[in-house]
Amino acid sequence: MYEQMVTAREYEERLQEAYLEGKQPAFDISAGPIPGELHLAAGHEASAAGVCAHLRDDDTVTAPHRPHHVAIAKGVDLKRMTAEIFGRETGLCKGKGGHMHLFDPDVNFACSGIIAQGCPPAVGAAMAADKRNEDSVAVAFLGEGAVDQGAFLESLNLAAVHDLPVVFVVEDNDWAISMPQERVTDVEAAAQRADGFDMPGVRVDHDDAVAVYEAAHEAVGRARDGNGPTLLDVQVHRRMGHFMGDAEAYRPDEDKEAAQERDSIERLEADLRERGLDDADFDDVRARAEQRVSEAIEWAREQPEPGPEAAHEDVFVDDSAAASGGED
């Protein structure tokens, strides 16, 4: 878990550097090797590592628009994911999905840029496993800004009605873009949403990877044993803006400072030191993470960009008119 978290943090910080190339001093969202928006998850690592530690390749995971830490914890191919973010043809989706629309069927991972839209597919995967009498589970990650969305609430209802093996993981980083939760939601914690659907709702108040691991152990185990869904609500923190280029003028300085001080990686490192690990162990982990991330980014930069003809590939085409002699 510690190595996954360190790798995810290193990955986000290196992506931030690459993303800002060519975009400064006057921010130009279309410039640089990674054009468009980029949402990074530095500060969210504990939720992904703690939950995915209990999952197998045949378990399904869906993530939101801030997905990289979840993808790393689930075992998504790092080089192909990076190539996708750089828009290269060897990416997971041939450079067409970008960082918010990653898909790796080898480990059953997908994400979406639409708020709460990973919930219905996760419930569908859980229902498929249930119908097949398989013990695989599904996990849907989402932010606290998504807990009032219809897709989320309808998914909770369907999962509860059918006792489906799915876990909903809310990553609460206090900010839905620029809006604090208390201004738009009438419950103190997302875990309370579970009360209306007769399912367990568990809140982890600190971004402590061990605490998340323990809560997820029960939730995933419950789902795998056929005992239905769980809503897991994890407090995390956002160390960067909502997206790269976000000036965060809405965010008080003391909140930004508190986010920097609440580091789940440092917390887990302290726990591991109490269990006998030393500087050499941590240096080895960091070195492996840095090498893995460097290799992925260097490989992605060297990959070819899709040619213009690729715009006509992997798209839905209605061939019925052509087959009947009509116009395309």
Rank of each mutant, 00 (worst) to 15 (best):
V187K: 15
P308R: 14
R183S: 14
V70I: 09
E257F: 11
R275T: 05
D186V: 04
Y213G: 12
E274A: 15
R273Y: 10
L156W: 11
D255K: 09
E257K: 14
A26S: 02
A194V: 08
V167C: 10
A83D: 05
E21L: 13
R273F: 14
D284L: 05
A31I: 06
F27G: 13
R288A: 06
E188W: 04
M1S: 05
R239F: 07
A42L: 06
M100E: 08
D283L: 12
V61I: 09
E21N: 06
A247K: 13
G97V: 07
A310E: 14
E313D: 12
D284C: 04
A249G: 05
G145D: 08
S155P: 01
M5W: 07
A128F: 13
R222C: 02
L20H: 00
D246R: 01
A270F: 05
I85D: 07
L15D: 03
M240W: 07
H101Q: 02
P35I: 05
Y2V: 04
L40C: 11
G145S: 08
G228F: 01
A110Q: 10
R132N: 00
L55H: 00
V76K: 06
M199I: 15
R56D: 09
H237N: 10
G245D: 06
R275G: 02
P33G: 12
A138W: 03
G87E: 00
A247R: 14
F152Y: 14
Q149N: 11
E305K: 09
V107P: 02
K131W: 10
E154Q: 08
P105N: 00
A189D: 04
A8H: 10
S30M: 14
E188V: 15
P308A: 15
A42K: 01
A110W: 03
L40H: 06
V204N: 05
A83V: 02
V51A: 00
P121F: 02
I34P: 01
E313P: 03
H101D: 02
K74N: 03
I72G: 04
T7L: 15
G118E: 11
H99K: 03
R56F: 05
A138P: 01
A140S: 08
F243I: 12
